[in-house]
Nucleic acid binder design. Structure first.
Length: 109
DNA sequence: CGTATGACCATTA
DNA sequence: CTAATGGCCATAC
């Protein structure tokens, strides 16, 4: 019931679903992997549209590991809880040891 | 159709 | 060092 936007969004969703458990990536990393390093915003916007999809948006954060999009989740700390549930330490909406859980599609794939 | 905004990132001043 | 700006694509009004 949603017209196939068929764009970066679809590709972003695919990559987002490829994120392994206990890992997280950044918008720019995905955009870079898609060949649109300057379209990091689109990735974030795609997540916004990912509502109702199998896209683990909680595993996608900004370059600093900051849960910028946590505000878009159901609850206020839902995103943080999900990440912590995966073994990722999150404090004040910021992922600790981010590089430790950073998953770069461009490198892993 | 044109304008404004958005879960960002990198560069330049 | 911090602050400001450009770029990208899609959605909403």
């Amino acid at each position: 019931m949603k017209p196939e936007t068929l764009s970066f969004f679809d590709r972003v969703y695919k990559v987002a679903r490829l994120i392994p458990y206990g890992k997280a990536t950044s918008y720019g990393a995905i955009a870079n992997y898609l060949g649109a390093a300057k379209s990091a915003r689109m990735v974030g916007y795609a997540m916004n549209s990912s509502h109702g999809k199998d896209v683990p948006a909680h595993r996608v954060v900004n370059r600093k590991g900051l849960l910028t999009g946590k505000h878009h989740f159901d609850g206020t700390n839902l995103m943080q809880q999900l990440l912590e549930s995966e073994g990722i330490e999150v404090i004040e909406n910021q992922i600790q040891n981010f590089e430790s859980v950073f998953w770069d599609p461009s490198k892993e794939l």
